[in-house]
Design a protein around this nucleic acid. Sequence first.
DNA 1: GACTCACGGTATAACGTTATACCATAAATC
DNA 2: GATTTATGGTATAACGTTATACCGTGAGTC
Lengths: 336, 336
Amino acid sequence: MEQKPKLADVALLAEVSTATASQVLRGTGRISESTRKKVLAASKKLNYVRDGRAASMRSGENREIGFAVHQIANPFNAEVISGVSDLLETEGYLVSVLDSRDDTARQRRNLEAFIQSLRGGLLWVPAENTDDATYELLMAHGIPTVSFLRRFGKGRFDHVGIENADAIASATRHLVDLGHRRFAYLGGTAGFGVRVERIEGLRKALAELGLPPPVIWDCSDDKVSGLNEISSLRNAHPEVSGIICNGDMVAIGACSGLIRMGMTPGKELSIIGFDDVEDAAIATPPLTTLAVSPYQLGRKLARVALDRINDPAMPTAVSLVPAELTVRATTGPISG
Amino acid sequence: MEQKPKLADVALLAEVSTATASQVLRGTGRISESTRKKVLAASKKLNYVRDGRAASMRSGENREIGFAVHQIANPFNAEVISGVSDLLETEGYLVSVLDSRDDTARQRRNLEAFIQSLRGGLLWVPAENTDDATYELLMAHGIPTVSFLRRFGKGRFDHVGIENADAIASATRHLVDLGHRRFAYLGGTAGFGVRVERIEGLRKALAELGLPPPVIWDCSDDKVSGLNEISSLRNAHPEVSGIICNGDMVAIGACSGLIRMGMTPGKELSIIGFDDVEDAAIATPPLTTLAVSPYQLGRKLARVALDRINDPAMPTAVSLVPAELTVRATTGPISG
DNA sequence: GACTCACGGTATAACGTTATACCATAAATC
DNA sequence: GATTTATGGTATAACGTTATACCGTGAGTC
């Protein structure tokens, strides 16, 4: 196989200068139709692909966007990714995903390597307990960055997230209407954005209704944890009948756990998830949840990123999208 | 904020040449301890991060690896990704993920953009119906590539996959021992690697036992499809009692479907999945499946890629890892 | 004291693009 | 016919690294 063709090879074959070839391929519109054709033919014949590194270095443009998530396995994130890339791809960007697995050290390594290639932008779900230094790192290197879901500090980056407090308030009202009086919040680990806001919302909603504060029960946001933790929670707090979960996966796990314990979600205990991932509707029983459309959320995120890239001087902003209570089978009137 | 510092700035501050600064930062070991310290101090003080584009362009090295998958949402893939990046990160590589969503057009766009930045390597689960041109594209640009799971042509790229035929044979024997005589293969769409090999394996295993050929029932590899298709399959082929699925997700969906229809997986019908994703063990009922450790598979994949990168001249090879029958609750003796 | 040699530093030319400024030529204007 | 003005092409200098080849200096050898 021959050497990788470069612009000079194309120019040579088309009998023009590299400057001309470059203009044709970039479509500046300054080149006559006849030479345009020659160059395009030559490029095609040689199977030319430009070296994006060189191009980006010279032009200062880079149409690659990174999406650094805390957990690639999370189906919610997977749907967000679809929304993000559908929008960005139509604008000619390439979206690639980095996974920190909520490990700050891994996240740090990933971001350091990412920064080196000076890509066009970064969408970022910060890992839990991300330290200031990592934020400084990103700030210092001036890559347009949008934080997502988990917010840190204020006004440092653009942010796209969920109206957590409002959502939780509507879930609480729903359960209270069904007769529930004692609540727990299940899932998530201490200290990070969404969970803090949600618990705060729950506390406030209960206080306003004159009800006792909720039990807070930490665990990771996956099915297995939900399955395991629900029995401990039940044993420790038998008075609790309304459970609001940090995510659908924990909620689904918790429902499986209840079934294993011989109970029925929506009868002895009511459970509400968060997100409305695809599985929520087809779980047995179908899960009552706070629905945010992850796909639409992804599109919103992409839009914010594009705006930032196109106008880096704009003041940073926070966009919150609402979550809507979707009642299915895991909530019901209190029994006994 | 000042301009982004470059190597020249570091060299200036350390009072050495850029050549020296470069050598220090790369650790060639040719520079005296005293100047080494000066340079490192200057670099730290300026918060210098090298421009990876320029470095890669000049040196021809690029420690970024792309992993192009057909479906990022698939939990199996998510676990593979963990294995891949755990191994590659220890070798100083950055792994980023591209999602084709099994759409050949999107895959094409992604790969074209990917190639432009001339990264260090590509791990690739080809989308279904990937055309020759896309393979040519990758061949032509000489990026070390390893295909994964889905094989195409022969010997063009290194390949890492699963011993599909053997696995299916053991699943078949298990079901036959339980008394099942009529089989179906559920899930996957026509014409691609793993499915072809598995169906072939099933055909052969049944033929050797003197049993009738299997029913082939196509559908996408997700829960919803499994849930929906199982009833049509049941109606169309009431004689079938042993179902082998293309993946755990379809299998779990099919089990949910059976339950909705008032049946019990492992009684009227036996169902076997493939992969052993995390959900398989905690599904209700727990799923009998052909277990491949996706994490270990990922490490194997990464290993093969590294070997290829380190020795591009080596002849291409195919590595197959076995899948092990893991009996849980969705298979049982034939009833009636 | 002339010769070799290792050591540690540097000047310089790449890598493959694109932005800029410039220069022909032909057409248009008076 | 001289002057302006589009039009379409090109030479050249960046972008920020690293590989190569080179060159002092001082120590070691005979």
